[in-house]
Design a protein around this nucleic acid. Structure first.
Length: 352
DNA sequence: CACTCGTGGGA
DNA sequence: TTCCCAAGAGT
């Protein structure tokens, strides 16, 4: 493979076929940053409406820095990986306080900011600041992995590092940002994970996987572990016209979002007694469980859950931390204002 | 390093 | 249904 030829032909293809995406209308570092964070492990079609709404509410880094966590989480609800949103708020506040709201332009400095790692640092440096830096993502691993029939597993650090070195050698001087995005567009529209459209590929004549019809074998990945399934119960505890919701701890699953209290069923326990136990442990009150409100199945990254929601009421005691900003009685039609994960949102909607 | 962190779409 | 996986980063 002749690397300069591949890069030149790929750029020529990109000049004619670049996708017209909202975040490509300017190279404003703030906008590039917002798009890259949202696009992390998330599809373009999913991101577009969130991107527009975000920019309408937070048009620049100063407006974001002035926001509170609830505003940010509300805009992010449904996108997943919620630590991304909290880290964006942290970075915005940090840059406004310490750098007059300006992003640093060096990769090493960018990577010090919360939520900015190898990929986004390279994307900002190359796309927003015009530097010759690599931005290697899942598309790049697939495109380049096939191009050279890369034998190491690309989901391991050593394999990624070697791919980064390869991509660095291919960077066209002065157009790294376009090159990085060209690789992504090629991976997203032609060099697809399954059934790639090689007949339309501008660099197929350089591609070893195309030559050997081995596209399905690259890139190599090590196997994933099978995921467990948990049985979970949640309580819709009523008092007057209100229901009780609590805020999840900042880190971990659905961190910082609100939920209906509950937890996992233990071995040899029925659903109702599991719920009574969980509420006793979590809130320090005793409840009477009434009827089931429905069952919800959901798959997270490393496990699945089957959630059953029950209506309930308090028999004895008061929820402990009610004074804190961690637990509240809320009228059902106002639950919309409380950012939640998918399952809790479905439960909330069932109450209306 | 291995593991964790959401959601939705497509085969 | 089940599985993979999509512009990764933090711990």
């Amino acid at each position: 493979m002749n690397k300069p030829d591949v890069s030149r032909e790929l750029l020529a293809w990109y000049d004619r076929n670049a996708r017209g995406l909202p975040w490509r209308e300017s190279h404003d570092p703030y906008r590039v940053w917002v798009s890259e964070v949202m696009l992390q492990q998330t599809r373009v079609d999913t991101v577009i409406p969130y991107y527009h709404e975000w920019l309408a509410v937070f048009p620049d880094i100063h407006s974001l820095a002035d926001a509170n966590e609830r505003q940010v989480m509300h805009l992010w609800e449904g996108l997943g990986y919620y630590s991304r949103a909290r880290n964006m708020l942290k970075t915005a506040q940090l840059l406004v306080e310490q750098q007059a709201g300006c992003f640093p332009d060096l990769v090493v400095e960018l990577k010090k900011l919360p939520g900015i790692g190898d990929y986004i640092a390279g994307a900002l440096a190359s796309i927003a600041f015009g530097q010759d830096e690599v931005a290697l993502d899942g598309n790049g691993l697939r495109v380049l992995g096939r191009l050279v029939e890369f034998e190491q597993p690309v989901n391991e650090p050593a394999g990624k590092a070697a791919m980064r070195t390869l991509m660095q050698k291919m960077l066209p001087h002065g157009r790294a940002g376009d090159f990085n995005q060209a690789i992504m567009d090629l991976g997203a529209t032609i060099c697809l994970p399954r059934n790639p459209l090689c007949a339309q590929c501008p660099i197929r004549e350089h591609c070893l996987a195309f030559e050997h019809a081995s596209q399905a074998q690259f890139p190599q990945r090590t196997k994933k572990k099978p995921i467990p399934q948990y049985i979970v119960v949640a309580a819709v505890i009523r008092k007057g016209g209100c229901v009780l919701v609590d805020k999840r701890k900042a880190n971990g699953l659905l961190g910082g979002l609100w939920e209906f209290p509950g937890g996992k069923q233990e071995e040899g326990e029925n659903l109702q007694s599991a719920l009574v136990r969980e509420i006793k442990e979590e809130l320090g009150v005793e409840i009477a469980v009434q009827e089931s409100l429905g069952t919800y199945r959901h798959a997270y990254t490393h496990f699945k859950v089957v959630v059953t929601a029950f209506s309930a009421q308090i028999l004895k005691g008061e929820p402990a931390a009610l004074a804190a900003d961690e637990i509240q009685w809320v009228e059902p039609d106002k639950l919309e204002q409380y950012p939640m994960g998918k399952v809790d949102r479905l439960i909330a909607h069932s109450l209306l």
